[in-house]
Nucleic acid binder design. Structure first.
Lengths: 160, 160
DNA sequence: TAGCCAAACTTGCAGGTACAATTAAGTTGT
DNA sequence: ACAACTTAATTGTACCTGCAAGTTTGGCTA
């Protein structure tokens, strides 16, 4: 039962700013994507992860790890995206419990169409107001933070 | 109709890390607070904003601005917190359309009780892995970002 | 090869949030 | 003084997510 070590003024200031970003940035990203493309940021991110995978296909649980979604959540998102014709489910040959999720041609084109607007939003909201040195600092700082949040690196995995 | 200006490798790396934090950090904060105190991070934040206000009281819309919640969302959160005895609604004397939301004594004690665990989580997940210089850099960087996200500074308002 | 535990989803149910419509009260213009 | 407009807050409806339970398949052990 130790004394609480409170935050210093600098620490507190950084934290307040971070909570503001946590609250505002997801909403801003969702707004642009749903307005322009009818996708949530999470749906876009899911499609983007698939688009970068070999053969544009991943097993459901690998996709869940990359998007940091729970399996139930991803299952329903995939159902929606499948309904929109953007992805396809297929049984996995090696393990018949598993299902593969693959981007359809339409899904690929959706990602290609949505990417420029999304990147523009990322630039406008974050990147373009920072100096190159700040971008690099931010990257280093967040690398450390992510290591605390996701020690196993599930979200950045490069394996199959 | 201009060409898309894609992200450089550095920019992309910073962005990937930021999206990871956006996904993981809220979940981690919610986990600690709901496990230890039965509060969501948003509920805790709402109580904390009230605790810092003069007389521990704010009008609903001022509280909504500080927490960046929509009015409907805040209305329901306040209803829940009121049900738990942590806040009280009272009609506003100057403007009878408005309602004031005030922390009860129990609500104040809840904040006091919850703060140490929350601060510990903030330290563990973010602050303590960074050098003082990184904390300051982070603060500067996020100040710029917040300016893009919230140009009017609603979330950091110091007025009534 | 029979039996048992673990893994990969999927679905039922409960809870929280957004958007739109609603109610009530202040403000403005004539 | 009254009608039209704006603002503050709440509620109806629909959707999304988490947790827990269920189903099918894989792997391990006797």
């Amino acid at each position: 039962m130790s004394e609480t070590k409170w935050l210093s003024a600098d620490e507190r200031n950084a934290w307040v700013k971070l909570t503001a970003v946590l609250e505002l940035l997801p909403a801003a990203l969702d707004l642009q994507l749903s307005r322009d493309e009818g996708l949530t940021h999470f749906e876009y991110f899911t499609l983007a992860m698939l688009s970068e995978a070999p053969k544009r296909m991943l097993r459901t649980s690998a996709l869940a790890a990359r998007t940091n979604a729970t399996l139930p959540r991803l299952s329903r998102v995939v159902t929606r995206l499948e309904g929109a014709g953007l992805v396809e489910r297929s049984p996995c040959a090696e393990d018949r419990r598993a299902t593969n999720v693959a981007l359809t041609e339409g899904g690929w084109q959706k990602v290609v169409a949505a990417a420029p607007g999304h990147v523009a939003a990322v630039r406008r909201l974050v990147i373009d107001s920072l100096t190159p040195a700040q971008v690099e600092n931010l990257s280093e700082i967040l690398t450390v933070v992510v290591k605390q949040l996701d020690p196993d690196g599930r979200m950045l995995a490069s394996d199959s």
